[in-house]
Structure formats: C-alpha cells, structure tokens
Amino acid sequence: MVAPLLVAPLLLLFAIFFVVPFVEIMRISFSGQGGALAGATWLMSSSLFAVIFLNTLKLALTVTLICLGLGYPAACFIAGQPASQRGIYLALVLLPFWTSVLVRTYTWALVLGREGLLNASLIWLGLSDEPQRFMFTPLAVHLGMVQILLPVAILTLVGVMTELDPGLARAARVLGASPWRAFWHVYLPMTKPGIVAAAMLLFILSLGFYITPALLGGPRHRTIANLIDLQVHQMNDWTSASAMALVLLATTIVAVVLLRWLVPDRTLHGGAG
C-alpha cells in the first residue's frame, strides 16, 4: 500500500504542471477564432513557420552530431581514466553545466561581439584587419548550443562507457584485432546504447532551445521556440503558438520512435552479461 504513495507527489506535480497545461494547449490550438482547424491552417499556410521549422530541425540535428563527435572521444578518455581520477575530469565537465545557460550565452556574446575577445585576438594576431561579423550568424548559434549541450553528451556517454567490461576490448586484441579494429568491431557497437541515449537527449533539448538562438542568432536565425514566443507576445496569437508547440512535441515523439526503430531494444539493453 505504501508503494503507490511514493509516486503520488510526483503524479500530482505532473497533473498540475504538465497534464493541465498540455490539455489547455490542445484546447487552444483547436478552438481558435477561425474554428477547430485554425491552428492547423495557419501552420500549413505560413511560409515563416515552414522555414523556421526546417531550420530548427537542421540546427537540432547538426548540434546533436557535433556534440556526439566532440563528446565521444572526450568521454572515451574520461571513462579510460582510473576511477579515482575520473571525478576530477567529470567535475571539469560539470562546472560549465552548473553555470546558468543565460550567463553562458551572454559570455558568448562577449566573445563573439564586434569588440569581443575573438575579434580583438584576430586583429592582434594580424589575421584580420577589421572586426569580423560573428554575432547573429549560424556559427554563433551552433557554438553557443554545442558548448551548452556538450556536458550532456559527455556525461551520458561516460555513464555507458564506464559500465563496459574493459576485458572485452582486451579479448578482441588478443584474438587478433588491431587497436582500431577492436574499437570499431567491439567498443563502438557496445557504446551504441549510450550514443542513442545521448542523441535523443541532445536532439530533444536542441529542438526546444530558446535563449541561445534568440541572443546569438538574432531575428534572422529564429527557432520554433522563438517563433512561439513571437506569436504569443507580439501577435497575441495563442492558437498558432499552441499548434506549433504540438508540432514540436510530435517531432520529438517521432524522433524517439525513429531512433528506437533504428536501434532496437535488444541492442539497447543487451549489456555485458
């Protein structure tokens, strides 16, 4: 009888702060002034939405891939350290993670700005005669998002990698695999669950990014989250905003299902055993 009570607070919290608003959003998106399909009609007809939606998907995908590409070797390195020293490296990864996203984003603005650190360095090094434009470019958005999300990638991957039996790579070596082939045929496939988990997390988080694109990308590099904000605060159009929120949710679900389908459960849970 106690067990159900243990999850009761969480269920209550979810009911109040997730289910209720979610139902409200559903209701709004299907009951605008233009009828039940007003939200859907707006989505279909808005070229702005189409462009921004595709850009958001592209951004989320590239940021996910860059984070995995940068995070995987770093995670390999950390997982390969003796347990006593792993904590130091994890702390180094966590340090920026504990810093507010807003602070980190503004810091990038300081670095990338016209009078920023990067421009100053380029001019001082003689690599550039005049300040280059970095702010409000895709580069700035990618840099900011990758820096913010990288710890998520590393922590997820390290978690899986430290669970691996190091004996497996040794077994591969003694049975005739070069270090590279032992990695390719044994280590990499065995870290697949970690890669999938990290990819899901990164993609879902990237899809909903708001502050970083808003501050570093400016009006020309908006994401869906920025557009939702725009519709609500500038246009006072809750119908289309809710419709977009639902599209975002649907995209997330599709992404998760797709990844699950690409990497079946069997491999996800077929750990060493």
């Binding site: 039996d165 004996g167 497996l168 077994a171 049975l175 044994v186 496939p189 065995m190 697949k192 491999t267």
Partner: peptide
C-alpha cells in the same frame, strides 16, 4: 585466450 569472465561480445 580464455578469460574467467568469458569476455564474449554481447552484441
């Protein structure tokens, strides 16, 4: 080589 923990590749 044969190991105590078998070290078979689970995938």
């Amino acid at each position: 080589m044969v190991f105590q923990s078998y070290s078979l590749f689970p995938h």
